[in-house]
Amino acid sequence: MTPTLLELLRSVDTPTVCNAIEVAQGKRGFNDFTRGTVQISDPSGVVVGKARTAKIAAKVPSTEDPALIRERRMAYYKYMSEGTEPSIVVIEDEDGADAVGAFWGELNTTVHKAFGLAGVLTNGVMRDLGDMAPDFPVVAGRVGPSHAFVRVTELDTPVTVFGMTVRADDWVHADRHGAVVIPADVIPQLEDAIRKTQATERIVLDATKAEDFDFSSFEAAWSAFENART
């Protein structure tokens, strides 16, 4: 992952990355993207990084020893502080569709940003929408007012968020559309694939700007587009 590619990835949306992965692979059908509608703290926010993973729960009180919960919490923060930049936090809320406990708000976004992390992907809850750390996108499942009984249950483990499985150190791209895991084997070709994706879309987009644009010119542009795309 070169600095040039990182800069490019931060400038494009997640649908473009999904299309570019298909271009790089030369086929359609990869499966490592989220399902369903997400919430995002900053509609213009884009986050890309290597995953630092954990699981949380919050709906009901824990039956574990409070000392163990505190120990795991500190181990979580230590783990997050040691990530190789850029890193994205990916957290699975084990309460799923019943998630009620907001782990992400003013405090945790500020702490994680200070650790050098780039943002968050979670199926869980966020709050403090007006007070979150700036330039730290949180892509979440919902918005809610309370932290309930939220606590960390696991860290540095495979997680599933919006139907997408993420492992520690996977490269993840996320924005208001959702997220995608970037396959490691396409990274060397990804910059060229993004450029090709953008160029092929321009065939149709530029055609629509012509003063004499009509169905015939659309048909010709679309044919050229289909011949160029994956």
Rank of each mutant, 00 (worst) to 15 (best):
53 T>K: 07
156 D>N: 11
31 N>S: 13
10 R>M: 12
183 P>C: 13
173 H>C: 11
115 F>W: 01
8 L>Y: 12
180 V>H: 08
34 T>H: 10
10 R>F: 07
160 T>L: 12
86 P>F: 05
115 F>D: 13
140 A>P: 03
29 G>I: 02
22 E>P: 05
102 A>Q: 02
152 V>Q: 12
223 S>M: 14
121 L>Q: 00
29 G>M: 04
14 T>D: 03
223 S>L: 04
122 T>D: 13
95 D>V: 13
15 P>I: 03
123 N>T: 12
61 P>R: 08
74 M>C: 14
83 G>R: 15
194 I>T: 03
8 L>Q: 07
61 P>S: 07
2 T>K: 11
5 L>F: 11
151 R>L: 01
123 N>Q: 12
13 D>I: 04
81 S>W: 01
41 S>N: 03
179 A>G: 00
192 D>S: 10
202 R>G: 09
146 S>G: 00
164 M>F: 02
107 L>G: 07
218 F>H: 11
199 A>I: 01
191 E>A: 06
131 D>M: 14
166 V>K: 00
177 H>D: 07
196 K>E: 13
145 P>H: 06
228 A>C: 05
163 G>A: 01
201 E>A: 12
220 A>L: 11
44 S>E: 15
172 V>Q: 07
3 P>I: 10
22 E>D: 15
137 P>E: 04
156 D>E: 10
198 Q>D: 08
204 V>A: 00
159 V>W: 04
62 S>N: 10
228 A>H: 12
45 G>L: 08
